[in-house]
């Protein structure tokens, strides 16, 4: 599939997602992740950073895409939006790693959105470390819906919370995690 067709597909999934289609949203995130991985790995390699840590940035970008998904205007192409967020988070990560003036040309990110990396990637470390900084209840909710793969409803039953409370707690936890990246790194 060429870039234009792929971006059309991503945009379609995102539009469906904003209408409440969770399956389309999952497809979008799963399909985008290998492209983010390809960019992050290449950039880390070029900066002499361990490529293994690139998966941390992939996760940080996914989290940012998620929390800022309402900033994409469905009437505009999705590629530039995706590239801008990716580049922003990539530069942040490189700067945290000591590359104080890391520059990532936006054209390079746009081009890279054409390549994907589906190699088996190990689990990333950073998110687990940040999980330790959440409040107990938030951590329990995030664990349930991620590592244990529970739905919000299942997590609610398991943790003796209402489903609404699980969703609110999860949303706050994700926002906290996104803010924690970088804040206490280095």
């Amino acid at each position: 599939m060429n870039t234009a067709a792929r971006e059309m597909q991503w945009a379609m999934w995102m539009r469906a997602a904003s209408g409440g289609d969770a399956a389309a949203y999952r497809r979008f995130l799963e399909d985008v992740a290998p492209y983010l991985r390809a960019i992050a790995r290449r950039r880390f390699f070029r900066s002499g950073r361990p490529e293994g840590e690139a998966e941390d940035v992939v996760q940080e970008i996914l989290l940012a895409l998620h929390l800022k998904r309402h900033t994409w205007d469905p009437d505009r192409p999705i590629g530039p939006w995706l590239a801008a967020i990716t580049r922003n988070k990539l530069v942040d990560a490189l700067r945290r790693g000591g590359h104080a003036r890391a520059q990532v040309p936006i054209e390079e990110v746009m081009d890279s959105l054409a390549a994907q990396d589906r190699t088996d990637h190990g689990p990333a470390q950073e998110l687990d470390r940040l999980l330790g900084r959440l409040a107990d209840r938030q951590r329990a909710v995030v664990r349930a819906v991620s590592l244990e793969g529970a739905s919000a409803r299942e997590a609610a039953a398991q943790l003796k919370m209402t489903e609404g409370a699980v969703r609110v707690t999860l949303h706050r936890a994700l926002r906290t995690l996104a803010a924690l990246y970088g804040r206490d790194a280095a």
């Binding site: 409440g20 969770a22 949203y25 999952r26 995130l29 799963e30 992740a33 998966e55 992939v58 996760q59 996914l62 989290l63 998620h66 990637h121 190990g122 689990p123 990333a124 998110l127 687990d128 999980l131 995030v142 819906v145 991620s146 590592l147 793969g149 739905s151 919000a152 997590a155 969703r167 999860l170 949303h171 994700l174």
Partner: peptide, 14 residues
């Protein structure tokens, strides 16, 4: 955490 696990969490936050 694996990236697929993170995605599972994100999908539960509509």
């Amino acid at each position: 955490m694996k990236t697929s696990d993170l995605i599972s969490a994100l999908v539960q936050d509509p």
